[in-house]
Amino acid sequence: MTAYILLEIRRTLRDTTFLVFGTGMPVLMYLLFTNLGGGGDHDEWKAYSMVGMAAYGALASAMAIGTGIASDKSLGWLQQLRITPLAPGRAVTGRAISGSVTVLPTILAVLLAGALGNGVRMAAWQWIALVLLLWAGALPFTLLGIGNGYRLTPQATGVVNVACLMGLAIVGGLWFPITEFPQWLRSIGEFTPAYGFAELGRSVVAEHAPAAGAPAVLAGWLLLFGGYAVFSYRRSARTA
């Protein structure tokens, strides 16, 4: 599996356009939102929007991996991979881990922009915890994105993944606080993956432990999307 991870990481790192735009977009959005909107000079807003944008950027680059997988499938690479002894579970895990290499720079870039550009100040442990939690917390979304990639054409994967991302971001309260939702939607929202993911980040900024449910909810989604990705991978090799 290590060899597979290394192979895919190499391929990703050689795709400069993907890296530059995947990393650059969230940074640009963050700097625009915090400096043009006149939303406020409060440090709190800058820290929260920094976490929000790092989270959103992490999700976006996590799910973008699916498109590359769909084009690998159209090249026949997934079938070729399927007839090596690499077990489907390992192939999917390896792909998810190698996909994380594009998630990390996105998180780092937004946090760096926050620290250097917007003067966000936090304790050292908060920065480290933020990076690690956002990075690990993006894994369920990576699995959802690659699961779609295993099933769909490259074009369809792009569209479906953006739709999933938007839907999850809205219901999970990444864009509007979940407290403004009607009660029924709020109860649903609290069990969605993006809510648990954002909760990890917010808890670090607010210096308290994340709500007990959040990691459990996220772990549940990790298993569910992981199962979906493995199932889709197994199907992807069929010839018709």
């Binding site: 391929r11 050689r14 690998d72 090249l75 690479w77 079938q79 070729q80 007839i83 090596t84 002894p85």
Partner: peptide, 20 residues
């Protein structure tokens, strides 16, 4: 048999993957 590494194959559809 595939999982045990007893089989190798060259498929008709295979095209080169980029950047390797």
């Amino acid at each position: 048999a595939v999982r045990a590494g007893l089989v190798g194959a060259m498929l008709q559809e295979g095209r080169p993957i980029p950047r390797v």
